[in-house]
Amino acid sequence: MSSADTILSARNLFKRYGRVVAMNGADFDLLRGEVLAVIGDNGAGKSTLIKTLSGATVPDSGEILLDGQPVHFTNPQSARSAGIETVYQDLALSPSLSIAENIFMGRELRRPGLLGSVFRILDQAKMNERARKELSDLGLLTIQNIMQPVETLSGGQRQGVAVARAVTFGSKVVILDEPTAALGVKESQKVIDLIKDVRARGISIILISHNMPHVFEVADRIHIHRLGQRLCVIDPTQVGMSDAVALMTGAKQPPNEKT
């Protein structure tokens, strides 16, 4: 694949925790504008891979390329400022703060002029307006109160706020960690639709999920992780769900030629 189409890639990542080898020469490629699902059995090292890409873990060796440029993330903030946003499984929202405040948490907008620069006063009107726009662009908001505390929202709505926060700041890559794990059927479907909406904006998405129907519904390609490295990447239109699970668990060997 040509590097122009690849937004984020990793080569030969290693990470050891004592005797445990969490990443054993792992490779990774995310294409521009795709939804790449990452699946793997528990202990396959996929969360270490994802943490490495989101800056939460620093690999022992190996390289990460973002837009063809080598990057070295030392913490989630450095990954975020490079354009990689992560929506954590527990969402990392502040429950008693409002929707708008959560979306702008840590990246608040200040008033123009002296009020903002010297007195550091926030521009709440602008933040509320942008939060409202962002949510309605994502099809998440009709009329309601942007000042509503997040804890009054349902699980799916919170997921929506977390995703909105991830896409509001011009990110290139959004990592979604088990976005449907805690949700009911209807709300899960809504989140799947939301992922499609985000993809339609040209943002590349890494989706970590154990839910095979969800993965097969939304993913363009599926990265199967096994024993600390990429086993293969499959096309969900060509390979069935049971084969994917068989590959993941080692019951089946991948075809020699990677798709």
Partner: peptide, 9 residues
């Protein structure tokens, strides 16, 4: 479903 997907209360 509309109530789930919007922020209506």
């Amino acid at each position: 479903l509309a109530d789930l997907t919007t922020f209506g209360r």
